[in-house]
């Protein structure tokens, strides 16, 4: 079983890895590149815990093969803060207590950042529909929605 040699960038840094054909990007990130911030909740594309961006596009990394990342730019939760300064979404999630267990949080933060890149001024309903693919079993979503709306407000400078 010859493995594939893949080069990509991960949070802006060059990475190379070897992977099996059937290994998902999620498995590569977690097991080969030791970036365990991206979580597996289902492995079938139904929970959003594994959300990352691939060349800027929001994807479930459990539905992408490791080899498909070849030459692409992967962004994960580990790259969201700039150095020691948290992204406004990260800060607002903490301030609003938008996480209880926190296992859904990395995926939701990545998905929410994608939303705000496209729509800096979303309505509550738009946030709810954008995040409908990200399951959270703990919070009932109130504080997640509030945190995203508050972060959007701050990022708009308002």
């Amino acid at each position: 079983m010859a493995k594939h040699h893949v080069s990509a960038t991960l949070n802006g840094n060059d990475v190379e890895f070897l992977c099996e054909t059937q290994q998902t990007l999620l498995e590569v990130l977690r097991d080969e590149l030791h970036h365990t911030g991206t979580k597996e909740g289902c492995g079938t594309g139904d929970c959003g815990a594994c959300s990352v961006t691939l060349d800027g596009r929001l994807v479930c990394s459990c539905l992408v093969l490791g080899v498909e990342a070849r030459g692409k730019s992967i962004q994960t939760i580990e790259g969201m803060a700039e150095g020691t300064s948290l992204h406004p979404l990260q800060r607002k999630f903490l301030e609003h207590a938008a996480l209880q267990c926190g296992v859904c949080t990395p995926g939701i933060l990545i998905a929410a950042r994608s939303l705000l890149e496209r729509n800096p001024d979303p309505s509550e309903e738009e946030v709810r529909f954008w995040l409908a693919g990200n399951l959270c079993r703990c919070t009932g979503y109130n504080k997640i929605i509030e945190a995203v709306l508050d972060a959007a407000r701050e990022m708009r400078g308002g």
């Binding site: 911030g37 994960t76 969201m80 990260q90 999630f93």
Partner: peptide, 16 residues
């Protein structure tokens, strides 16, 4: 809080 929003908190599956 901070490790949980930066992906550094270690859950059951994150140990090796």
């Amino acid at each position: 809080g901070v490790p949980k929003v930066t992906g550094l908190a270690r859950y059951g599956a994150d140990y090796a």
